[in-house]
């Protein structure tokens, strides 16, 4: 028993990276879903657009968002590296494979599910993140009567917008904002995109039903009382509530709005 190899080049070290980035991405999903529930408010996007400004301009959240981008990239790259190493560990495949007798389909196809999610992320970022950051969204002006709380809105042009600003004149709060809400509404009028989002959320559900509890196993977590709790969270929170919550957004804009 001599000196040991560095942790991150070991199999368990790589699992640790997958596990930690995966859990971090899972926690992001909770925040992302709760924040985006504001899309369901019938206020012409007043709450949602203000929230979008906060999420893109508040320094601590920006730091977390860079961690998030890094996590996605690291998670995907490590997945690729591990998949290649795992392929190399079995150069000749079985002629007949009885995988379904001993393991669940999603646990054996995390790479395929993950690829669907990665393609989805590219589409999703392009639709909203890119457009929001590159002045490709419409602009809106809200007038909120501070006495009554009534909010009225009107679309404004780029020349009227200048920058996000909130001013209070005569007890009326005027907010000029990028109208990401309108962009969401516009994007989800495309039935193809709506179907793709729903499929991606199904992939996400199956990815996380295995992934979330698997991450804790990789961390070495084994406890009679708490492992069932984690498995419950895997299925009900990350496999049901979160994907359905997200899938309802495109469906809501397509069918209801």
């Amino acid at each position: 028993m001599s000196n040991s190899k560095p942790v991150l080049s070991s199999s368990i070290g790589r699992k640790l990276i997958m596990s930690l980035t995966g859990i971090f991405l899972c926690t992001f999903l909770i925040v992302h879903l709760i924040g985006n529930l504001q899309l369901f408010k019938d206020d012409a996007g007043y709450a949602f657009n203000n929230y979008a400004y906060l999420m893109t301009h508040f320094a601590p959240i920006k730091v977390v968002s860079y961690l998030l981008y890094a996590s996605i990239i690291i998670h995907a790259i490590y997945a690729l590296v591990l998949t290649l190493k795992n392929r190399a560990a079995r150069p000749i495949a079985y002629a007949q494979n009885g995988g379904k007798a001993n393991s669940k389909w999603n646990s054996r196809n995390m790479g395929i599910l993950g690829t669907v999610i990665l393609v989805f992320l590219a589409t999703h970022m392009n639709n909203f993140w890119w457009k929001y950051h590159n002045d490709q969204t419409p602009y809106i002006e809200y007038s909120k009567d501070l006495a009554t709380g009534v909010v009225t809105s009107k679309e404004i042009s780029a020349s009227e917008f200048h920058d996000y600003q909130v001013t209070v004149v005569n007890n009326v709060e005027v907010t000029k904002a990028r109208d990401l809400y309108k962009q969401v509404d516009f994007a989800f009028q495309n039935i193809g995109l709506v179907i793709f989002y729903v499929i991606a959320m199904i992939a996400l559900a199956f990815h996380l039903i295995h992934g979330f509890q698997s991450a804790f196993q990789s961390l070495g977590f084994a406890h009679k009382k708490y492992v069932p709790l984690i498995k419950g969270l895997s299925v009900w929170l990350f496999g049901v509530i979160i994907p359905i919550g997200f899938a309802l957004m495109p469906l809501y804009f397509y069918f209801v709005k």
């Binding site: 001599s2 040991s4 070991s10 699992k15 393991s103 054996r108 990789s218």
Partner: peptide, 25 residues
């Protein structure tokens, strides 16, 4: 022991666990 055996396991060219549970089954 934990380090030495894991190192040797990796050196032998075995793959990486993805927690499918097939081994246990």
């Amino acid at each position: 022991r934990a380090q030495a055996m894991v190192d040797q396991m990796d050196a032998e060219g075995f793959g990486n666990c993805t927690n499918t549970g097939a081994c246990e089954a």
